[in-house]
């Protein structure tokens, strides 16, 4: 009798162990294979700079209120409030100790494309690798090359202040298993080069959907509501719908959108506001062609009310 119970308990323990192992396997940090970063050659710094601006790095990583050339100092420290707690944005300047100056391309690339930190840990998706994952290793090489040319800062940001269970990084593995992929958000059914460039810029480095798409209770983007707007995750107010069905921007022409990105003025000469001010400043650094591509894509996504 005792033997039988031991067997049952043993079998039960084995099942649990297999389950835990499977869960671990499915949710463990998953960097890209080392050879992804080989043979990329010299970075194209101009392309890297475009990615820097469309990626909005300065929006979070520059010091609060930075203007002029100071927006290129990625000193970190900005507190990002969220329903899960407060994130303190890290230093990603070229400083070898406080920043990422001593990181390898693979380390930087795994953070950008896989949400895996230098120590092999899961990164919080407040850093939008969930969008950046749509970039290629070539893009990452160009961006990393450009960022190394920016000034160093010795600033050290405080640790994140998150409530339980969000302070357990292993839980992020489950979140990533559910919500993290690098698939396109919309099927454009068009091989048009400009549209594809727009899709890359908006869905990838531009990470527009991170704010402009509503999230479910677990913080995953609602795929069926791509770019349909919703409550402001950082506080009061609403983030506007930017699909062609939008009451505010749906009627804007592609030219109106481009002009808005360049000047911050709506067709009625109302001005950009809220967190979009920072985004618009960054977008104003992009070429006319890239801004036209973004506008064309925004006109091609499914209409949402």
């Amino acid at each position: 009798m005792a033997l039988r119970w031991t067997r049952i308990l043993g079998a039960g323990a084995a099942v649990v162990a297999v389950g835990v192992a499977a869960a671990w396997f499915l949710t463990k940090p998953a960097p890209l294979p080392e050879d992804s970063w080989a043979g990329l050659g010299e970075p194209d710094l101009a392309r890297g700079e475009t990615l820097f601006w469309v990626g909005g790095c300065a929006g979070c990583h520059a010091a609060k209120g930075a203007t002029g050339d100071a927006v290129k100092v990625m000193s970190g420290g900005l507190p990002l409030t969220s329903p899960f707690g407060t994130f303190h944005v890290p230093n990603i300047s070229s400083d070898p100790n406080a920043g990422i100056g001593a990181w390898t391309l693979a380390e930087f690339g795994n953070a950008m494309l896989r949400g895996v930190g230098k120590g092999g840990e899961h990164l919080y998706p407040s850093f939008p690798y969930t969008s950046y994952a749509r970039m290629s290793p070539e893009d990452v090489n160009n961006l990393f090359g450009y960022m190394k040319t920016l000034p160093a800062s010795s600033n050290v940001a405080p640790p994140h202040e998150l409530g339980f269970p969000y302070n357990i990084r292993a839980t992020l593995g489950g979140w990533k298993f559910l919500f993290f992929n690098s698939e396109p958000w919309v099927d454009l059914a068009s091989a048009d080069e400009k549209l594809q460039r727009g899709q890359f810029l908006v869905e990838g480095p531009g990470h527009c959907g991170e704010c402009h798409t509503p999230r479910n209770a677990l913080g995953g983007l609602e795929a069926g509501q791509w770019l349909a707007g919703g409550p402001n995750p950082e506080g009061e107010g609403r983030i506007p719908n930017i699909t062609p069905g939008s009451r505010s921007v749906g009627s804007w022409s592609e030219g109106d959108l481009v002009n808005y990105f360049q000047t911050g003025f709506t067709p009625d000469y109302d001005s950009v506001g809220g967190s979009m001010v920072e985004v618009q400043k960054n977008l104003s650094h992009l070429s006319q062609g890239d801004l036209e591509a973004i506008a064309a894509y925004l006109k091609a996504v499914p209409e949402r009310q």
């Binding site: 911050g264 506001g273 809220g274 001010v277 400043k281």
Partner: peptide
């Protein structure tokens, strides 16, 4: 305009 609206204007 944008510099002020960033902090002091709310879209509801």
């Amino acid at each position: 305009c944008g510099d002020c609206h960033e902090t002091y204007r709310l879209k509801r």
